[in-house]
Design a protein around this nucleic acid. Structure first.
Lengths: 185, 185
DNA sequence: GTCTATATTATGATAGAC
DNA sequence: GTCTATCATAATATAGAC
């Protein structure tokens, strides 16, 4: 084979990480096992340990994400921005995010990671919103989307099955707008 | 001691269930252990098994809840109803609910239970709302509140720490109203 | 470099002494 | 009826053969 060993290794590592993301996303941290990841990646379980050292480390690598490059937003843009996260423009919500969300309620490290991601999102939205309680309202917007995403992607609530993203966005838009604006008494 | 044995047993059982609710709520199904529950309830671990038979059964008993008695609601009442669930009128959100929510993403049975509770809530709200897509909008309202509750009670997002319930309700009300009404183009 | 075999640990569950 | 002792299982992690 003309494939250099470094390249082979890189590919194997990527296959393990993909498998890990799928299993962590489906089962959560506790129920996903090194053995299961290895089976899915078609490698030996010991190899997973060899490459990543521990289950903890494997999880961290699997859910690591590049934070979205930020630019300035106005209040209108903020709404569209969070609506856009409903489903990534093309393809699915990154598998790593699902893995993190699946575990965020039961695995302390995933919880910390989730808080960090949410916090960044809240910061970003708050900058685009007027008023003293901008951070609080930005938090509510962010958690609204978290709830929808959890219900849709993780709990797979019947009512949202197969509903096109555009329809969800259309229904949610006025609701999110109400959170950006100044008080509506 | 003048306490009849049946009464003693009943009290012990209640103490075990309380301990179980706390641990399941804090740690989730997987990380909570029979031994931990027993320690907190100050009984022998074997006694827990004696009473409940299995961890699974203990969990079911711990999260069992009496569904709220339902009466007719209008659209206005629906909003206030979901806002009321932010924090139960007095006292906290029932510990059993927290236990169920904590585990709903990683424990299949908790997930099923959560879907059922959410579905009931969605039904109830949908009846009070006009329009063809009432169920979908009711689902979005319900998931909005789920997101807020998860962020507040389970992830303990900084931005919501110590914010009085009334303020959350005030900020969320217009947003939820937007979901009840017919389309706002 | 890859895998076999195993150490270690923690759990849910059970059997039986008292 | 309550608890001691233990079984059985399954996991992460490691050591060492090949």
């Amino acid at each position: 084979m003309g494939v250099p060993r470094a390249e082979r290794r890189r590919r194997t590592e990527a296959r393990i990480l993909d498998a890990a993301r799928v299993l962590f996303a489906e089962l959560g941290y506790e129920r996903a096992t090194i053995r299961g990841v290895a089976r899915r990646a078609e490698v030996d379980p010991a190899l997973v340990m060899q490459y990543f050292g521990s289950k903890q480390e494997l999880f961290q690598q699997a859910v690591r994400m590049t934070p979205p490059a930020d630019g300035e937003l106005d209040a209108e843009g903020a709404v569209e921005h969070v609506l856009g996260s409903l489903t990534m423009k093309l393809g699915e919500l990154p598998q790593g995010s699902l893995a993190m969300m699946r575990s965020m309620l039961t695995h302390p490290e995933a919880a910390a990671s989730a808080r960090q991601v949410l916090s960044r999102q809240i910061d970003r939205l708050a900058e685009a919103m007027p008023g003293d309680d901008a951070r609080l309202r930005a938090a509510l917007m962010t958690l609204t989307m978290l709830g929808i995403t959890v219900g849709h992607q993780l709990l797979e609530i019947d009512e949202l099955r197969g509903v096109p993203q555009e329809e969800l966005a259309r229904l949610l838009r006025p609701s999110l707008r109400a959170l950006t604006g100044q008080e509506v008494s």
